[in-house]
Design a binder for these strands. Structure first.
Length: 750
DNA sequence: GCGTAAGCAGTTTTT
DNA sequence: CTGCTTACGC
């Protein structure tokens, strides 16, 4: 029989069933150490595939189960909504309780929560809006123009970048050094930063950087508030510590002062976000910043085969600035990492797609495969090929749901209804769909708003009472404002999803896309329908809008069997049985710009990216490179990436892929130069191929007799004369294409 | 105010 | 070769 007092008891302690600590049984000894080292500063160096997420969530559970803290006394922060969601779900599952209201989420969500509680200390109203990149840029554009700056030489996005970097470093305009202020964008960036912050306060808005920067300011200016948070959060947990920026570091340090129960989990070898402000030094310096810190290394990898792991480890060992880990695996050898060459991008795509298809025919799900590229544009060739051969694929990244134009427009309508004084929303939709309100009318509204310190909506309201505007725009604005009022009137009477539908219809927005003849229009209408459906899941319009501004991702249902295409950055934290790594060529990967701008440090980050790529693979990693690539409409020779040379030969098989032996398309577009007869000869150099599967052969033997002075033929550049031989690299003066360096195996004697 | 042509730059991306 | 922004003409 159920005893009420018992029920009460177990629900308040929440965890007596877990006192047997069964949740610890699933851990290996090191993981267990990382979980049980609860008090004081702890750095967990979690190599790829070592069960990081399990440790994180178990640790959280352990702190609660051991009675050290109540749920509200924990603060666990991650970078992405996805990681946050995963942690919440796993904790909820282990404990069998809801984690609603717990401080488990992203840095920014935690910052926003704090700011909403104390907005008034920062000159904000608790209802402040959170701007996204698009809003920021439009705002900055206005400010740039207001200062009369040349938008060509100093585009708003440049300022956005500079300001963001300052915010990443925890610097308010006053804290930027004079030298740096004078330096950045001809000295224009710092004053603009001031303008920008001032304007944000005026419109009661913050950007993402502010969520932390304002919180820092709050901590500094209101020590009592900081003290309260310090007391509340007895245990701090941080994921992906290697990706934290200075602002986040300062924020954590402030909160951890006192009890110092801070646990940071990360992997210095997977730090790939320096360009957006991440400071790898944060993790390298941890011991120094938190004296007496325990360091736990998770080095047992459960994901990849020994070959893959050995290759990745040897590669990353070329980096100097690292804490050092030795990954090992209980698994056996598996397949060596494959390195294969292709003639050009189209050829490479063809080879990879054939291999994916061959694996599929052997029973592998496409879901278990991924093509990981350095830069987004590289997915195009793969898409084209996948479409022609009919292999289903999904692209991760690209324009996310809430960043699409139609979604942002719709949300601007919702915002203007929920928050009448939202200027940025007003501007966005005032002439969408086209209502005949151009820059001239808008300028009048702006001038009045500025002069009387009004929001744009208020200013518009006053303006139509004057005769400043011509009758036509005046009536249009009048009608629009009446629409706003009507919709606001419905706010309390209609479920917000219904109101949204009504609003999109009555504003003419849906009609605008229905009339649009472009191929994307139907998709956009579909997205709008989806948006309205998604809204229904929230209690209120306000709740939905907060979700939108913080959680700008959408997870596509992973139902269908598709191969995944994405960037290496996007792949961090994921794993696949088979990973294709195309484009391992100097200039592409490592990326030339990264090298030019960032030097040795950047090269190390590129190498970490390569490491991340390799360690995504459970069973197979297939690296490829092409001999020539079309870059901006011009053929360029390509050298294999230096990273290929850094892989240990013992764990690598150089494969010749099934290439030109079969004339099954893919070559149609491939060449200004290449006469077909050459393919026969090229194919002769390749080994026999069975069923589209890569065949492992020893390194391609150097074609005999290529020496300086000889005439050679190259598929893309035609005929030329060898000028110099440098190992397997030939410098050739081509008759038509000029002087290029190419690798030996891609030329033939002419 | 809106539609079309020249001009130019062109990694990685989360919140 | 693209896609985006800007400048012009109607």
């Amino acid at each position: 029989m159920l005893d009420v007092s018992n029920t009460m008891d177990s629900s308040t302690t929440a965890t007596p069933a877990l006192h047997s600590a069964t949740y610890l049984d699933a851990l290996n000894p090191t993981q267990r150490l990382a979980v049980e080292a609860v008090d004081g500063p702890v750095l967990v160096l979690a190599g790829a595939g070592t069960g990081k997420t399990r440790v994180l969530t178990t640790r959280l559970v352990h702190i609660l189960a051991s009675g050290r803290a109540k749920p509200w006394q924990l603060l666990a922060v991650t970078f992405t909504n996805k990681a946050a969601r995963e942690m919440r779900e796993r904790v909820a599952l282990t404990l069998g309780t809801s984690v609603d209201g717990w401080w488990v989420g992203t840095f920014h969500a935690a910052g926003a929560r704090m700011l909403r509680q104390h907005a008034e200390h920062l000159g904000l109203k608790p209802s402040f809006t959170i701007l996204d990149a698009d809003d920021q840029q439009r705002l900055l554009k206005q400010l740039t123009e207001a200062r009369g700056l040349d938008a060509k030489k100093l585009p708003p996005r440049l300022f956005m970048g500079i300001i963001q970097r300052w915010k990443d470093r925890g610097l308010t305009p006053d804290q930027v050094s004079t030298a740096e202020g004078a330096d950045a964008a001809d000295g224009q960036a710092l004053p603009l930063y001031r303008d920008y912050q001032e304007r944000l306060l005026q419109v009661n808005a913050v950007d993402f950087g502010d969520l932390l920067l304002h919180a820092l300011k709050l901590f500094q200016q209101q020590p009592d508030i900081l003290a309260r948070y310090q007391q509340q959060f007895r245990y701090l947990l941080v994921d992906e510590y290697q990706d934290t920026n200075v602002a986040q570091y300062l924020w954590l340090r402030a909160l951890a002062q006192g009890h110092r129960n801070l646990c940071c989990v990360g992997d210095d070898d997977q730090s790939i976000y320096s360009w957006r402000g991440a400071e790898i030094e944060n993790i390298l310096r941890f011991e120094h910043d938190f004296p007496g810190a325990q360091i736990v290394r998770l080095e047992c990898n459960y994901r990849s085969t020994a070959h893959i792991l050995a290759a990745a480890s040897a590669l990353i060992a070329h980096n100097k600035g690292r804490l050092g880990k030795t990954l090992w695996t209980p698994r056996d050898g598996g397949e060596p990492v494959t390195v294969q060459a292709a003639w050009d991008g189209a050829d490479e795509a063809r080879i990879v797609c054939e291999q994916a298809d061959a694996l599929r025919r052997k029973g592998q799900q496409l879901n278990t495969m991924a093509v990981l590229v350095r830069a987004g544009f590289q997915t195009r060739e793969f898409e084209e090929r996948l479409i022609t051969v009919g292999i289903p694929y999904r692209i991760v990244g690209g324009a996310r749901f809430y960043e699409r134009q139609e979604i942002r427009d719709a949300i601007a309508y919702f915002r203007i209804v929920a928050q009448p004084d939202d200027d940025l929303a007003f501007e966005r939709i005032v002439n969408v769909p086209k209502r005949g309100l151009g820059p001239a009318s808008l300028r009048s509204i702006h001038i009045l708003a500025r002069a009387r310190n009004l929001s744009l909506t208020q200013a518009a309201r006053q303006l139509i009472e004057t005769d400043e505007l011509k009758p036509q725009p005046r009536n249009t604005i009048r009608r629009l404002l009446a629409d706003f009022d009507r919709w606001r009137g419905q706010l309390d009477h209609l479920p917000h999803a219904d109101l949204a539908r009504l609003l999109l219809d009555e504003s003419g927005y849906t009609q605008m896309w229905r009339a649009d003849r472009s191929p994307e229009a139907p998709g956009r209408l579909e997205n709008l329908r989806e948006l309205v459906v998604a809204m229904a899941e929230f209690d209120s319009l306000g709740g939905f809008l907060e979700h939108v501004s913080l959680v700008m991702d959408n997870d596509e249902a992973a139902g269908e069997d598709k191969i995944t295409l994405m960037t290496l950055h996007a792949a961090k934290g994921l794993e696949f049985d088979t990973v294709f790594l195309p484009g391992w060529e100097e200039g592409i990967f490592p990326n030339m710009r990264a090298l030019e701008e960032g030097g040795a440090k950047s090269l190390e980050e590129e190498r970490r990216l390569a490491y991340v790529g390799l360690t995504r693979a459970r069973a197979r990693a297939i690296i490829s490179h092409a001999a020539s690539r079309m870059v901006y409409g011009m053929w360029q020779p390509a050298m294999p990436s230096r990273f290929i040379g850094e892989l240990p030969p013992a764990n690598v098989a150089h494969a010749a892929a099934p290439t030109a032996a079969r004339h099954d398309g893919g070559w149609e577009r491939s060449g200004a130069f290449g006469p077909t007869r050459r393919w026969g000869e090229a194919a002769r150099l390749q080994p026999k191929v069975i069923e589209g599967e890569a065949v492992q052969i020893p390194d391609i033997p150097p074609a005999a007799g290529v020496a300086a002075g000889e005439r050679v033929f190259h598929q893309k550049f035609g005929y030329g004369r060898v000028q110099a031989v440098n190992g397997d690299r030939l410098e050739i003066e081509f008759d038509k294409a000029g002087r290029k360096t190419v690798i030996q195996s891609f030329v033939e004697p002419a």
